[in-house]
Write a protein that binds this DNA or RNA. Structure first.
Lengths: 153, 153
DNA sequence: TATTGTTATACTCTATAACTATA
DNA sequence: TATAGTTATAGAGTATAACAATA
């Protein structure tokens, strides 16, 4: 707990916070452009892509309300968004036999392919950034990142 | 260029791409929640916050068209967004003496304070993540990040 | 009576088109 | 005639309210 007359003390936490903030911001710009354009070209909304992502990664059946809760959106908004996905054959919507008020939303093979394509576009932006790194820097970053990413929830 | 019978070859580039992608995604979730809620509570749109950020970081005078171009939005959309910012006293909008068709948008002291508050909320999310790291991991990540962030555009 | 989802309606944000003022 | 910005209007996406079906 070092005291200092000025408030210029920069701790490792401060420095890392700033570094991570800058990096995330930069990567978002890199990867966002192409991704948003691709989604737009598909005629899908961001909400629909997020829903597809949730469904692609879900392990248990997912109801409409589940999706809305995860995405922080209202039930009507999800109903409409899923409606569009159903019409395009990207997901299916069926009554839950255990509770017929509820609907089970399941991604189709076509929906999964579409989601993976979007994922690849995003990854390509990150990859372009990584490819531009000095190999030594790249390896050092990987070393620093490996144990942290391993523990992400 | 090692050949392999399977396609399981994972290069450092692959691994780092994935690690960075995962980290960015995780940090976005952490920092996005509070930030979006704060913006919403202020009654401002995301566009208005982005405009404020651009203006807060701008070094030269900025026209309405400049903002729209940077943000990828139409002139009418920017006009409306800036209108709201002017009404709240967060920016000023004045004729450019050199070309009276053009307007110079300038952030006010109050606008700058507001932008910094939002920035702090976002940074707080990153900081919470950093605080949760094992100190050794934290320092290793900082070492890996330092030369890279230094060279960001 | 409570809950899941859908439909009706209003609001916000955006874009295109039409317009004004200046170059 | 071309350009910077504003105003008018339409479309997409969201939320609240009202509704239907099931628990």
């Amino acid at each position: 707990m070092q005291a200092s007359t000025a408030s210029k003390q920069v701790t490792p936490t401060d420095e890392l916070t700033r570094a991570l903030g800058d990096l995330v911001r930069y990567l978002l710009v890199c990867t966002g452009r192409d991704t948003f354009r691709a989604i737009d070209d598909l005629g899908l909304s961001l909400t629909q892509i997020k829903a597809a992502q949730l469904l692609a990664e879900a392990e248990a059946p997912v109801s409409l309300g589940d999706i809305g809760e995860h995405l922080g959106l209202s039930l009507p908004a999800m109903s409409r968004a899923v409606d569009g996905l159903v019409k395009r054959g990207l997901v299916t919507r069926e009554e839950d036999p255990a509770d017929r008020r509820s609907k089970r939303i399941v991604i189709t093979r076509r929906g999964r392919r579409l989601y993976e394509r979007i994922y690849e576009i995003r990854a390509a932006g990150v990859r372009a950034f990584v490819d531009g790194l000095d190999p030594d820097h790249r390896d050092a970053l990987l070393d620093g990142l490996r144990p942290i990413v391993r523990d992400l929830p």
